[in-house]
Amino acid sequence: MAKLEIEGRVFDVDGDGFLSDPSEWNEEVAALIAKSDGIDQLNEKHWAILKIIRDNFEKEGNAPMIRKICQETGIKLREIYDLFPLGPARGACRVAGLPKPDGCV
């Protein structure tokens, strides 16, 4: 198991830096992971996206489709890619504390 250290806090993560234990996640952890991706301050739009991803994970056990994120937050698709430069999977899902999705992401 790999370790990820951000500002003195140490997390158990998989090789891609996704939290090994999603229950370790909270808003403070999200802000720290975001910082390590170069997002200094999570804004309202970031939080709206993270909330949907997190809710979906807790109910369905996986990441939501990007359609659901766009339609429930009202944020345009292209803007989501700007908000999370690493994309919805390596960017947003990681900040939301999910395990890494399978496939080419």
């Binding site: 990441a63 990007i66 698709l77 292209r78 999977a89 496939g103 080419c104 992401v105």
Partner: peptide, 11 residues
Amino acid sequence: LNPREPKFFPL
């Protein structure tokens, strides 16, 4: 398609 298109990158 590659499934990552419908899941995350549908453009």
